[in-house]
Structures are given as structure tokens and as C-alpha cells.
Simulated assay, not measured.
Amino acid sequence: MNYIKAFAPATVANVACGFDIFGFAIQEPGDTVEIRRRDEPGIVIADITGDEGRLPRSAEKNAVTVVMLHLLKHLGRTDFGCEVVLHKNMPLGSGMGSSAASAVAGVVALNELLGSPLSRKDLLPFAMEGERIASGSAHADNVGPSLLGGFVVIRSYTPLDIFSVPVPEDLYCTLVHPDIEINTKDARYILRNEVSLKNTIAQMGNVAGLVTGLMKSDYELISRSMVDVIIEPVRSILIPSFNEVKKAAIDNGALGCSISGSGPSMFALSRGIENATKAGEAMVRTFAEVGIDATMHLSGINDGGARVLESY
């Protein structure tokens, strides 16, 4: 093969109580990457669309190509060359896993072009390097679900231990992106280094409750467990009308609502598409009341993750 086109979906990370350990994929939006072999060794970024010229064009500095360079080095393929086109279909600094989708689409496309020498799960450490270059931290709660699909738990980073949790068929995500931007590095910088024992115990209970609720399709337990007492109180100050938007979602049928990733996007989980739609419309209206335009995405949990769209 000489050409591969791959897609990787947006994701919701943290999922309220699961900072850096929970994440799930949605159906759309997502990033698309095209790669084509070239005779000369090395990786060249031929074009990037949708970024308004903001992303670096150097292969060593862009999340989509850094992961490819790491994969080629691991495989000893110093002879390989390709040109890359990245199509950004979600805003930068959105809290929707934008850099993760680029990294995942890139590493999936390259692995396919090389004849799939690595399994999907084995590609994860390479995809995480895209997050390191983008945000300074090689976390897996976005790249994991974008790569593998489903609701993902990262039990450990040293060593990396990741697995998926079954979710109810009627569980829907409403992802609302207000037209503002939060830098992931800044959002991590404001977090506290120490957490009280009381909050740690409460958070552990919610983590256990959310996993159990998902596995048992216990919507009441899911709702009670979508509480973040550690990260959300700090990061929510960066999002205008956060408390009002969250209340609007829950008042209109959502099981719970919190920050998607580092924000400013907010997500709600609901039982059934009707509740998810009502909650999302209420969230958009509430942002509009303070003069902020917002875009809503409605999706079931994407259990397939990244996929190859075209090859020849």
C-alpha cells in the first residue's frame, strides 16, 4: 500500500471523578489523517487544514507526526518516508481530545501502511507521546479510548495497565463546546499538589460507584457517582456560568454533568437520546444567556475507536 486515510474520534476524559484514569470515545467529531509514501526517508507534513495556521509544521513538534517518528524508531525503519496531511475537525484547546485524536489517527495510519506490525493496544505508548508534546504530560485517558474505543480505565501508568468497562446500551453523551479556549497546560498548572484525606476517600467512592454503575446498568448509581470533589471545583472557575450550565443539564434529565477533559467543553451523561437532547439544548441556551455561542454533539459511546477509512 502507498496511501492510508484514518479517522480517530473525539473523547471525554476524566468523566467527573476519574482524573487521568477514565475516558470514553464518542462517534463524532474527530480528526482525519492522510499519509502517502515518498521515496526519500523521513516524515514531512504536507498540509494541515482546520487549524487556522496555529499548529507547527515541523514533524518533530506536531502531535500527529511525533508519534510516527517514535514508531519508526521503535521498528528500526530509518529507510521509510511519507508525507502527512492532517485535517483538524475540532477546535484546539477544546477539552474534546483534539491532540489525542491527531496522534491516534497518525499512529493508526502509519501502522496500517507498514503492514500492521503492532496491535492496537501496543500502539498506545506511541500515541501517548503525542500528548506529551501537546500538553507536557503523556496521559492516556484521551488517546486510550480514541484508539481502542469504549469506556476505558487506566489502572496504572507504571507499568501501563488499561482495560475497558461495559456500558449500558441506552447511555448517551451530550458534549457541549462553548466558543472559548482553555490551554491544557494552564488547566493542569492550577491543580493542587495535595488533596485532603476526606476528599480522597469521597473521590475513591465515586470512582468505584461509577464503574459499578456502568457495569450493572444502574443509572441511579451512575448519577450519584458523577461527582468530582477534587478537580472540578478548581477548573470550573475557568468556565463562565459553569454551575448554571451544569444545573441546566441535570434539571433537564441528565444523570450528571461535568468538565470534559481540561475544558472548556462540558459533557452530560443521560439515559436515552431524548434526555440527552433536552439536556444539551438547555446547556447551549444557558451559555447563550451570557453571550457565549456553544456547539452541541450528541452520541452514544463509540466502542470501535479509530478506524481506517481508505487504503490503496
Score class of each variant (00 low, 15 high):
residue 260 S to V: 10
residue 150 G to A: 06
residue 297 H to N: 10
residue 177 H to Y: 15
residue 304 G to H: 13
residue 89 N to R: 15
residue 165 V to H: 04
residue 205 G to I: 11
residue 30 G to L: 07
residue 115 G to E: 11
residue 133 I to L: 13
residue 70 H to G: 01
residue 163 F to C: 09
residue 94 S to H: 01
residue 240 P to A: 11
residue 7 F to Q: 04
residue 38 R to D: 03
residue 50 G to N: 02
residue 169 E to P: 03
residue 263 G to I: 04
residue 171 L to Y: 14
residue 238 L to D: 00
residue 299 S to A: 07
residue 118 L to Y: 07
residue 108 V to I: 14
residue 84 V to G: 07
residue 119 S to W: 01
residue 288 A to G: 13
residue 262 S to R: 03
residue 203 Q to T: 08
residue 308 V to E: 08
residue 60 E to C: 08
residue 82 C to I: 03
residue 154 I to Y: 09
residue 175 L to S: 12
residue 148 L to P: 07
residue 136 G to V: 02
residue 84 V to K: 09
residue 108 V to F: 11
residue 62 N to R: 04
residue 284 V to L: 10
residue 219 Y to W: 05
residue 11 T to V: 07
residue 252 N to A: 09
residue 90 M to P: 12
residue 65 T to V: 01
residue 197 L to I: 15
residue 200 T to C: 11
residue 101 A to R: 00
residue 78 T to P: 06
residue 129 E to G: 03
residue 88 K to P: 07
residue 61 K to F: 15
residue 193 N to Y: 05
residue 293 D to R: 10
residue 58 S to C: 00
residue 194 E to S: 13
residue 85 V to H: 10
residue 84 V to E: 12
residue 15 V to M: 10
residue 64 V to L: 02
residue 70 H to D: 15
residue 162 I to W: 04
residue 54 R to T: 11
residue 293 D to Q: 10
residue 161 D to H: 10
residue 110 L to E: 13
residue 148 L to G: 00
residue 270 S to H: 06
residue 227 V to H: 15
residue 158 T to W: 09
residue 121 K to R: 13
residue 152 V to P: 09
residue 173 C to S: 14
residue 76 G to F: 09
residue 87 H to E: 13
residue 2 N to C: 00
residue 212 T to S: 12
residue 285 R to I: 08
residue 141 D to H: 01
residue 70 H to L: 00
residue 207 V to L: 12
residue 202 A to M: 15
residue 6 A to W: 13
residue 250 I to P: 01
residue 145 P to I: 07
residue 224 R to Y: 03
residue 143 V to N: 05
residue 159 P to N: 02
residue 183 N to I: 03
residue 262 S to T: 15
residue 53 G to D: 12
residue 135 S to K: 06
residue 108 V to K: 03
residue 266 M to N: 03
residue 249 A to K: 06
residue 101 A to E: 08
residue 98 S to G: 10
residue 149 G to H: 12
residue 291 G to V: 05
residue 122 D to N: 14
residue 236 S to R: 11
residue 64 V to T: 14
residue 267 F to C: 06
residue 28 E to H: 07
residue 40 E to V: 06
residue 112 E to K: 05
residue 189 Y to W: 15
residue 29 P to L: 01
residue 41 P to G: 04
residue 112 E to G: 02
residue 138 A to K: 04
residue 37 R to T: 14
residue 100 A to T: 07
residue 265 S to C: 08
residue 77 R to Y: 09
